[in-house]
């Protein structure tokens, strides 16, 4: 399988220390300044982080964007369902922002990016799905694209049904060819019993805190290697 190249990345999570890494934002509340306040008000914290990261990693707003999230905005979506059950009218704004592609939709409005965007939920296989989709786009004459992986804790009354998750988001620019400062991303078959991959795991991997990440569902593993200078 052809290698991919990691050109650049950005991350957000309040659950890690940046330790001098400028690409990692660890503030409790991301600024969200990439989006005007009249649009920003409708984004949750993860959504604000995603838009800020996109502005940083794709300043020309001209990249394909793939966005994966296992649960999306579970808080809004599930609470709306309970509201419906109790006969309450739906909030139009909350309904509009509960869809899985809401965040990248807001980003496209704010940035003017009219390239393809894709929203993915894969029941725990989000990272593997992002890489598989990336390979497809890169094979289809695109030289690079941006992938985003974000999630937030599942609402408390559903927490027992899902692995514990943490607020985190990560954006990576992947390409077919190396560029200066890029790292090679290799993928190999790997039968593992690791916990489901979450955005925080990808941040740890990018920070060098773990050597590889692996997806038990797709039985694949990924490693990063520096390129000879």
């Amino acid at each position: 399988m052809a290698d991919l190249y990691l050109h650049d990345w950005r991350g957000w999570t309040p659950h890690r220390v940046a330790d001098g890494e400028p690409r990692l934002d660890t503030r409790d509340k991301p600024a969200g300044t990439a989006v005007p306040s009249m649009l920003r008000r409708r984004l949750n914290l993860v959504g604000r982080a995603v838009c800020d990261m996109l502005a940083a990693i794709d300043p020309d707003a001209d990249s394909l964007v793939l966005h994966a999230s296992r649960h999306g905005d579970g808080e809004r979506t599930l609470e709306m369902l309970y509201g419906l059950d109790e006969g309450e009218p739906l909030s139009p704004a909350r309904f509009g922002l509960s869809v899985h592609n809401a965040t990248v939709g807001v980003y496209s409005i704010a940035s003017g990016n009219r390239r393809s965007q894709q929203a993915i939920a894969a029941s725990g296989g989000e990272w593997a799905a992002l890489i598989a989709e990336s390979r497809g786009y890169l094979a289809d004459h695109h030289s690079s694209l941006v992938v985003i992986f974000s999630d937030q804790p599942v609402p408390p009354r559903f927490a027992a049904y899902a692995p514990e998750s943490f607020s985190a988001a990560v954006a990576l620019r992947l390409g077919r060819e190396p560029v200066e400062g890029a790292r090679r991303l290799t993928e190999t078959p790997m039968a593992v019993d690791d916990p489901t991959l979450q955005p925080l795991d990808i941040i740890d991997w990018l920070m060098g805190l773990r050597q590889r990440v692996a997806c038990p569902m797709s039985r694949r593993g990924w490693q990063l290697a520096n390129l000879p200078s």
Binding site: M38, P89, S91, P92, A93
Partner: peptide
Amino acid sequence: LGLDSIDALELGLALQK
């Protein structure tokens, strides 16, 4: 103020409630 069409729907709902 710069409100949009979704705000109009939201405001209509608030007036009803």
